[in-house]
Write a protein that binds this DNA or RNA. Structure first.
Length: 780
DNA sequence: GCAAGGTC
């Protein structure tokens, strides 16, 4: 009798083998894959760990050429399933030959069921055995033994629901991505692919919605009345209970009434002790959010580091939905590892207690325990094991979070004064940390103490100052990665293992970027979302995922046949496709325009600025016939400006034209040119934009001489334009030094010609010292 | 070259 078991990953195979064999299992390698063999109940057992999905869907070969296939045809074609990890395929065939019993023992969820069926479909080519399912929510001894003693039937509906998801996701993703990419390419050169997907698109949609809210935001003025009061020699600030007062007159009335008041009274005083509970244990999503928020480590990197920490045995499995510990979780033996080093005080404290009780959350994904440390490691050990920047910080966060969760709440004393003045109420609150509790080990969240003076009820206060401050409401802030993850989680976009990858996809596609901690949408992303939003609004919202999800849930529950779900899902996608198709022209024009504009903006050399006539951008256009500044909106927008015919052009990003020119260009090394206005030396604003480089007092009037540089000459002129000019050397680099002529007080000029020594001299023709210098120079 | 889902 031979029993063959498939698990989702090698780790589980090893663990289960140890439990079921009592430690006697022997590992062998079949086609590079580990297989654990042992005898149990008179049967030969072979347990093999897969690597997640080993099969995947793709379109048949003849559909792989984008140009030859109408993207719509993909909707009427069923993709085919293929083994994409060949070594697993052949290993399964080898170990399954002649098996009497197949046990599917993958993770207890939809994808796990499906992965088990992948192995089953391969194994059944070489054996005709009974197939059973082992269901367990953790790899603990008791649970594994129970699962294998009470094998159940595999759940085909559950497996097929994942199958439907795969097919529908691919159909939609492939057809929409090809359609949008190819359509836009007719008008603009895209950098890569413009992809659309049931997870990535709504993820970008969240960022887009926030951007819309920011752009649409209308700032409102409000007034806030604040008072500074003095009691027992200390100052205390109170805010008028009206808070933000949007009506100026109303604020004025209150302010007028209070102005000049000398005293106020404490009309109420409350002191309350408040507890702040420790955080729930870490599931993947919470871990990623905290890594981003506290450590500034991106979700993508954080998951990768956690994976490495897990593989090197320092922390537990990082992909879990569960935020509560099992009853038999052994905290003490983990804490024993931490009785030396950074966390020793907390570990010792906890170990000295009679019981160690976590503050559990309520999510049980029946998968893995919350992320927690497995063994203690020093910074050096962690850095040696995980060669990634920030590995230690991530480990430290996991350890601190683990300990914090076990510690008592932090206790604060919150004091609130109500201050009455002329019948108007002011509030002043403060809080003092009485007991740090879990916060002591968790430096990431430090509430700041605000200490109020010890004042009594009915105490009379002197009014030090009353202010009526005008302020403005501020637009919503951009999303942080942590907030985006929260939104995705809330709307069921992606899973614990894939959420970071959807964010990464959007970055890779150039739809949004992460700037510091916030996510900024890029023009391509915004325009794409905007176009989709106006043609297929469901795509930009989480609804697309949930409508597919409810279809496949019906399959899982046995309420809908797999084929019917596929059919309904496909027609849903077709409906969206036709909406997209009917808006094709508008969409393409807008996206292609934006892509062109983004490319122009990225072309630092030729990008001039925003077009004053339309929404597009101005750039330097060079043709055989000459050059000019033109708009990317041409031919709809005919906004153009002439440029000087010769001389290298350089856009001066740091300068702005005070007359409203689109940009200031530097022409060669000679002069500036304001786009739309012309050469700066002919502009009456020149002095403001480029303050004259004063050389000295004008010999002809009470003005000052300064250096004028034009296209083809340079000379000294007068700030009062009295007509006095003086020539300066034509060749060489000319600078005005800080040295001053003893004779006339003019600043000395310095001329440096290539291959010659630099020469410093006074340029004033009326200066005697200068004249002497010139004659002595000639004599030489 | 398209998706999303597993895991190494």
């Amino acid at each position: 009798m031979t029993t063959v078991v498939f698990t989702e990953k090698n780790k589980a195979a090893a663990q289960i083998s140890t439990i079921l064999s009592g430690g006697s299992a022997k590992r062998s390698i079949v086609d590079g894959v580990s297989v654990y063999e042992f005898q149990r109940d008179g049967s030969l057992w072979k347990i093999m760990g897969l690597a997640g999905h080993i099969m995947g869907y793709d379109y048949p070969e003849e559909f792989s050429n984008w140009r030859d296939v109408d993207p719509a045809a993909l909707l009427d074609t069923d993709p085919v399933k293929k083994i994409n990890k060949a070594s697993f395929g052949s290993a399964i065939l080898k170990i399954s030959k002649g098996a009497d019993l197949l046990v599917l023992a993958c993770d207890f969820d939809r994808e796990g069921e499906n992965i088990g069926f992948e192995a089953k479909s391969i194994a059944e080519k070489v054996c005709n055995s009974t197939v059973k399912r082992a269901r367990f929510s953790s790899l603990s001894k008791s649970e594994i033994e129970k699962a294998f003693n009470e094998l159940v039937e595999p759940d085909e509906n559950m497996a097929m629901s994942a199958e439907a998801r795969q097919i529908l996701d691919l159909k939609m993703g492939a057809s929409f991505t090809r359609f949008v990419t190819l359509s836009v390419r007719e008008r603009a050169r895209t950098k890569g692919v413009l992809s659309i997907g049931p997870c990535q698109t709504p993820t970008c949609g969240f960022v887009y919605e926030r951007e819309l809210a920011i752009r649409k935001f209308d700032s409102r003025d409000f007034w806030k009345i604040e008072g500074v009061f003095t009691g027992k020699g200390a100052d205390i600030t109170g805010v008028h209970r009206g808070g933000h007062i949007y009506d100026k007159e109303k604020a004025d009335v209150i302010f007028k009434k209070l102005k000049g008041c000398k005293t106020a009274v404490i009309s109420k005083k409350t002191v309350k002790e408040m507890n702040t509970n420790p955080p729930f244990p870490l599931n993947t999503n919470e871990f990623l959010k905290r890594a981003s928020k506290f450590l500034d480590v991106s979700p993508d990197k954080a998951l990768e580091i956690a994976e490495q920490l897990y593989l090197s045995g320092f922390t537990s499995y990082p992909r879990t939905e569960t935020n509560m510990y099992a009853d038999d979780m052994d905290f003490a033996s983990i804490l024993k590892g931490f009785t030396k080093g950074d966390y020793q005080d907390f570990a010792l404290l906890l170990l000295s207690q009679k019981a160690i009780v976590p503050r559990n959350g309520k999510k049980d994904g029946h998968d893995h325990p919350p992320i927690h440390p497995i063994k203690a490691g020093s910074r050096m050990e962690i850095e040696r094991a995980v060669k990634m920047p920030r590995a230690w910080d991530v480990y430290d966060l996991i350890v601190r979070h683990f300990i914090a969760n076990l510690l008592p709440p932090a206790i604060f004393e919150k004091t609130r004064f109500e201050i009455t003045m002329e019948g108007e109420l002011f509030d002043s609150t403060g809080s003092i940390q009485k007991n740090a509790g879990w916060l002591a080990v968790y430096p990431f969240e430090k509430p700041q103490d605000k200490i109020l003076p010890e004042l009594d009820l009915n105490e009379i206060l002197a009014v030090k100052k009353i202010t009526n401050i005008k302020s403005q409401t501020t637009p919503p802030k951009r999303l942080t990665e942590a907030e985006l993850l929260t939104l995705m989680d809330k709307h069921g976009i992606g899973t614990k293992a894939t959420a970071p990858s959807h964010i990464e996809t959007n970055k890779k596609r150039g739809y949004f970027e992460v700037k510091g901690k916030t996510i900024a949408i890029l023009d391509t992303g915004f325009t794409l979302m905007d176009a989709l939003n106006s043609s297929v609004p469901i795509l930009v919202k989480p609804d697309i995922r949930s409508s597919i999800e409810s279809l496949i849930q019906d399959v899982e529950d046995g309420n809908k046949k797999f084929e019917l779900a596929l059919e309904e899902g496909t027609s849903l996608i077709k409906e969206m496709y036709s909406q997209l198709l009917s808006n094709r022209d508008l969409m393409v024009t807008r996206i292609a325009g934006t892509i062109t504009d983004e490319a122009v903006e990225a072309d630092k050399k030729n990008h001039v600025g925003k077009c004053s006539e339309c929404e597009r951008v101005l750039r330097i256009v060079s043709t055989d016939k000459g050059r000019f500044v033109g708009c990317t909106g041409y031919p709809q927008c005919k906004n153009t400006f002439p440029l000087p015919k010769t001389g290298a052009l350089a856009v001066q990003r740091s300068r702005t034209c005070k007359k409203g020119g689109a940009a200031v260009l530097k022409v060669g090394s000679k002069y500036f040119w304001a786009v739309g206005i012309g050469p700066c030396f002919s502009c009456d604003m020149e002095k403001e934009c480029y303050p004259p480089e004063i050389v000295g007092a004008c010999p002809a009037c009470d003005g000052q001489t300064f250096l004028i540089t034009t296209k083809d000459s340079r000379f000294l002129g007068c700030t009062k334009r009295c007509g006095h000019t003086q020539s300066v050397p034509k060749n060489g680099r000319l600078t005005i030094t800080d040295k001053v002529c003893e004779g006339c007080g003019w600043r000395l000029l310095r001329v440096k010609e290539q291959g010659k020594d630099a020469k410093e001299y006074c340029a004033n023709r009326k200066c005697e010292v200068a004249a002497q210098m010139r004659s002595s120079y000639r004599k030489k």
